[in-house]
């Protein structure tokens, strides 16, 4: 699912969704994503949760790996052990559907929102999945993004989430990736003001990730890496401070990581991969590279797709 998102959102940043994805593929791929939805065994909108059933599993799986028969249209399904959603996969599945132009009408919003509630820990972060209790900033961000896409924040306890984010702040911001997740989460929650006190210091820290070669590194003492052009660049953009970085120098660095086989790699001498190819494009888009679709860094999708989310999907257009 994540691979699909990198590929399809990458195509979107290049402005080529209509041109390079055939109508048949577009429709089939929407079906494939829906077939990965983990649905409850009961109708959540009209029935009480049966005894023994659990809320935590709902959302999207990363692949059909649990062995469920392919069915993009089912609204309920018998409970299967270990057929569970994953926070990051629900996030990328929803974005992929939006980019492909779907209206999200087959998404079981109530089940997903209840699952989010179930997955928030006491400390305020989120577990990735009921099948694997890793919890950290990545999944808190995914929960905020899912809530935003579905236009429903009942699944996130904002106070607890903000407390977790502020507590996770070390004397510095430790890691470009987790800083993005924290800053974007606060933006999606409408809580960016809680960092006002150290906003300037945070901006300074992010800007210092830019190295002499023009690229961004994730932490002090590390070398530049393509993906931090997005993680750090997007954080700066959300904080309204991207203009303070040297985007020309960053572009020069990114040019060195473009592979002759297509795509981007982590460093000049590494092999290209889908994640870095996508992040390289996303980083260039934030730098307003001509010819690329502008990005909304809070969700990591193009403004084109964001516009479709707000004007062409069920949960934003229905009267609440």
């Amino acid at each position: 699912m994540a691979m699909a998102f990198y590929a399809i959102s990458g195509i979107d940043i290049c402005g080529a969704v209509e041109k390079s994805i055939s109508e048949k593929n577009r429709k089939d791929w929407i079906e494939w994503v829906y077939a990965q939805q983990v649905v409850p065994s009961w109708d959540v909108n009209s029935e009480e949760k049966p005894d023994g059933a659990s809320w935590g599993a709902f959302g999207f799986r990363g692949s059909p790996s649990s062995g469920r028969p392919f069915n993009p249209n089912q609204t309920t399904a018998e409970f299967w052990h270990h057929d569970t959603s994953h926070m990051a996969m629900t996030y990328t599945a929803l974005l992929t559907l939006v980019i492909l132009g779907d209206d999200l009408s087959r998404v079981n919003r109530e089940a997903i929102i209840q699952a989010l509630k179930h997955c928030q820990t006491e400390s305020g972060s989120f577990i990735a999945s009921v099948d694997g209790a890793e919890s950290d900033m990545r999944f808190l961000f995914a929960a905020c993004a899912i809530s935003y896409i579905l236009n429903d924040f009942r699944g996130v306890n904002t106070d607890r989430a903000v407390t977790y984010i502020l507590k996770s702040r070390t004397y510095e911001n430790a890691h470009g990736g987790s800083t993005y997740c924290a800053v974007a989460s606060l933006a999606l929650l409408g809580q960016l003001h809680v960092i006002d006190e150290f906003r300037l210091e945070l901006i300074g820290w992010l800007l210092k990730r830019q190295q002499d070669d023009g690229g961004f590194a994730g932490r002090p003492g590390k070398v530049s890496d393509t993906c931090y052009s997005f993680w750090v660049g997007a954080s700066l953009e959300i904080l309204g401070a991207y203009q303070f970085s040297d985007s020309q120098a960053n572009r020069k660095f990114l040019e060195t990581t473009v592979s002759s086989r297509g795509g981007f790699s982590k460093h000049a001498d590494a092999n290209p991969d889908p994640l870095h190819s996508y992040m390289g494009l996303a980083g260039l888009s934030i730098a307003k590279e001509p010819g690329l679709e502008p990005l909304w860094p809070q969700l990591n999708i193009t403004l084109r797709a964001l516009n479709h989310l707000k004007n062409g999907t069920k949960w934003w257009t229905m009267s609440q």
Binding site: A4, A7, V33, S63, P64, G67, F70, T96
Partner: peptide, 14 residues
């Protein structure tokens, strides 16, 4: 055994 069911036209078959 339960086989993998990828459907007719998966996005990124492995």
């Amino acid at each position: 055994p339960i086989p993998l069911d990828e459907g007719p036209n998966p996005i990124s078959p492995i």
